[in-house]
């Protein structure tokens, strides 16, 4: 009996990631372009037209203040939707069976889909950053923090998208979470304002929103300003990644949504 060698795992993982990247690249007009157009509009309307009347936020020009949040918004939604739609459509068209009959372990399937989600998240994040250069000079206060936060956040939401994809039974069910949970939490997660502006009670409520910590940590990485503790933010992000990964592994091992 021959165990699956490390080299073979590596080949399998690369195959899944490459396939995922090719998938969203082929349909770049649907996947890569829209977030850049949307973000450009945000910059023009909020940053340019309205922002000039708002004045400073946390000591920064409003335009400069919203850049990190808008990058995160794009990374979060794109990582999530890449994995949820890829997984759901592979279930819908049944080609998830190609992976299920093969010796690829479920942990590797999860990593492969994360790879695709992170690739799309970072590609869009980079695109949005480039768009932002037209409106705001790019500040990088602490590159390792900025990069690690954006990558970890992307991993986190890839996992969340995967779980959504596993449970979803219809196309409706893959848009419910993004529309009713993800987008509101992101908008309320300090993308457009500093939580320190909120009255005490709403500040406390906001602190239950995990996205707040990610946006805040990323803003620290770029601008050097933050409302919350960086350590707490990292712990929250890593905690969520751990929990979601274990949950994803359990449901894949049980064959939920894919095995009868």
């Amino acid at each position: 009996m021959r165990p699956f060698h490390l080299q073979e795992y590596w080949t399998a993982l690369r195959t899944i990631v490459a396939k995922e990247v090719l998938r969203f690249s082929r349909i770049w007009v649907q996947t890569l372009l829209p977030p850049m157009v949307t973000t450009a509009l945000y910059f023009i309307i909020f940053g340019g037209l309205i922002g000039s009347r708002i004045g400073d936020m946390d000591g920064y020009r409003y335009m400069d203040f919203i850049v990190p949040g808008l990058i995160m918004l794009a990374v979060i939604t794109n990582s999530y939707s890449n994995v949820v739609s890829s997984f759901f459509s592979s279930k819908f068209q049944r080609h998830i069976e190609e992976l299920m009959v093969s010796p690829v372990p479920n942990s590797l399937i999860i990593l492969g889909f994360i790879g695709g989600g992170v690739a799309r998240g970072l590609a869009v994040g980079l695109g949005v950053t480039l768009v932002s250069l037209f409106f705001s000079p790019l500040a990088v206060h602490n590159l390792p923090v900025a990069l690690s936060v954006v990558i970890l956040t992307s991993i986190l939401f890839s996992l969340a998208g995967l779980i959504n994809g596993v449970f979803a039974r219809s196309f409706d069910e893959i848009s419910i979470m993004p529309t009713f949970v993800l987008t509101p939490l992101t908008y309320l997660g300090g993308v457009f304002y500093s939580v320190s502006l909120l009255p005490g009670f709403w500040q406390d409520v906001s602190k239950l929103n995990p996205i707040l910590y990610m946006v805040d940590a990323f803003r620290y990485g770029l601008l050097g300003t933050s409302d919350l503790s960086l350590t707490v933010s990292y712990l929250i992000i890593l905690g969520f990644i751990g929990a979601l990964y274990v949950f994803a592994l359990v449901i894949l091992n049980r064959g939920i949504g894919v095995r009868s």
């Binding site: 080299q7 795992y9 080949t11 399998a12 899944i16 190609e98 093969s102 010796p103």
Partner: peptide, 13 residues
Amino acid sequence: EIVVNQAGYYGIP
């Protein structure tokens, strides 16, 4: 691609 990817899942370079 379909055939080659399947081979990839079995660890074939």
